[in-house]
């Protein structure tokens, strides 16, 4: 059943002076979909999110959120969005639960409703025991969860998450992913940016790979990997001095990417590639066979790593 997209962006551009931070993005997001923007620092992810969030005026192109134009209906759109910005902006002078209630008031919701809703959301964010804490006393992961809870206070149609787990330790990230996964299962439309390929693989049905404000590729994580990479990757290290030299001897085994600290050999079977490497008499210091990831897709498309 084809459903009307909740976000339609066509040729979206945002310029700061002469510099185009977002340089002609076109994409659509279907209701219930979990859509990702994957890209390195400065790719224009946050800028795109601010335009989709109806707070930043686009320079050109067209944009419709829930069928409305943000230039004309900013507040209406924003009343139906949940926003988790890249930098937390919880009120540090209010307690945890009060942050939710105050935020809910911005949507004109009655206090009676908000008190109950705040408790439910604190439960969901696993912060019920911290309801009376000061925001400053929360860990980074807890603040992130509180920001997500706050973004849900108005039962949004679309939840925008700008780098939801950047800066968190692995355990905190997993807790957060679990919460987001539940939202996704319940049919909340998620739009998220990340520069972690594992996050994109975990959470996104479909994503665009963005670099320098442009779309480099689009598709599901699996399709992108299939299209732009091989099934497996062999990583070999010969020591930082010798990687480049060894690469010459690896010609023909598979497509190569020479990084400062290692050489990547793209092959459908990593084991077979490794056998060939040994057969040629090369002795890498370490070797590792792994499945291709979005990182490889990005490397292929841009010649650069996602995380510098």
């Amino acid at each position: 059943m084809p459903s009307t997209p909740v976000i339609v962006a066509a040729d979206l551009v945002k310029k700061y002076g002469d510099f185009a931070a977002v340089d002609g993005l076109s994409f659509e997001v279907a209701p219930g979909e979990s859509f990702g923007l994957l890209g390195p620092n400065g790719a224009g992810k946050s800028t795109t999110m601010r335009m989709v969030g109806a707070v930043s005026t686009r320079t050109s192109g067209s944009l419709a959120i829930l069928g409305l134009d943000p230039n004309r209906s900013g507040p209406e759109i924003r009343s139906r969005l949940g926003v988790v910005p890249q930098a937390d902006n919880l009120d540090n002078e209010l307690r945890v639960r009060d942050n939710l209630i105050v935020y809910g008031r911005y949507f004109g919701l009655p206090l009676r409703h908000l008190r109950r809703r705040a408790d439910e959301l604190l439960e969901f964010a696993q912060l019920a025991d911290r309801a009376g804490s000061k925001v400053d006393d929360l860990s980074g992961g807890m603040k992130r969860r509180l920001t997500i809870a706050r973004a849900l206070i108005n039962d949004p149609r679309i939840l925008l998450l700008d780098e939801p787990t950047t800066g968190l330790d692995p355990q905190a990230r997993h807790i957060l992913w679990d919460r987001l996964f539940r939202l996704k299962e319940q049919g909340t439309t998620l739009v998220l940016t990340t520069h972690y390929m594992d996050e994109a693989e975990q959470l996104c049905d479909r994503l665009i790979v963005v670099d320098k404000g442009r779309i480099m590729a689009e598709g599901s994580p699996a399709a992108l990997i299939r299209e732009h990479s091989t099934r497996e990757v062999l990583e070999v290290r010969f020591g930082s001095e010798r990687n480049a030299g060894a690469a010459a001897d690896l010609e023909g085994i598979g497509r190569l990417e020479v990084l400062p600290d290692r050489v990547l050999v793209y092959a459908d079977s990593g084991e077979a590639a490794l056998e060939e490497v040994t057969r040629r008499g090369l002795q890498p210091m370490t070797s590792l066979v792994r499945r291709s990831s979005l990182e490889d897709v990005f490397l292929r498309l841009t010649g650069r790593s996602l995380i510098e």
Binding site: Y106, L109, H113, R117, E120, F124, L152, D155, R179, R182
Partner: peptide, 16 residues
């Protein structure tokens, strides 16, 4: 799970 949306509470842009 995330608490379900409460259909009784409508957000009214005019009020905001």
């Amino acid at each position: 799970s995330a608490p379900a949306a409460d259909p009784a509470v409508l957000i009214d842009p005019a009020r905001i």
